[in-house]
């Protein structure tokens, strides 16, 4: 649950993720990720580098801020949900009614 405690802990990471709504920030991140992440801690940079959605969420990232990073990297929501469940995308899609609707 994303509450004020998580929001406070994740503020710096969420601010970075949110900045990816700006095209120039996305372009910088794709070109030179370390420069784009210079305000993050080493722990935060590591999670972003690995695209470790679960670690970032546990740390305090809002799902909706994670979506900005996912869109920037071309990752879909079903891929993120599969990751949270500890499944591959193929395993997750087998549990869905219309696997092609994505």
């Amino acid at each position: 649950m994303f509450d004020l405690e998580r929001s406070a802990k994740g503020l710096r990471l969420n601010r970075f993720l949110h900045s990816l709504t700006q095209r120039e920030k996305r372009e910088l991140f794709l070109r030179d990720p370390e420069a784009a992440m210079k305000n993050l801690s080493e722990e935060e940079r590591g999670m972003v580098r690995r695209l470790d959605w679960k670690a970032m969420q546990d740390y305090g990232a809002s799902f909706f801020c994670l979506e900005k990073l996912a869109r920037t990297k071309g990752v879909t929501n079903p891929e993120m949900v599969a990751h949270f469940r500890g499944e591959t995308l193929e395993q997750f899609l087998k549990t869905r009614r219309v696997p092609g609707a994505r």
């Binding site: 969420q57 799902f63 929501n77 993120m80 949900v81 949270f84 469940r85 997750f92 549990t95």
Partner: peptide, 8 residues
């Protein structure tokens, strides 16, 4: 639900 173990 998008997050956590109950995602999906």
């Amino acid at each position: 639900q998008m997050i956590g173990e109950r995602a999906g």
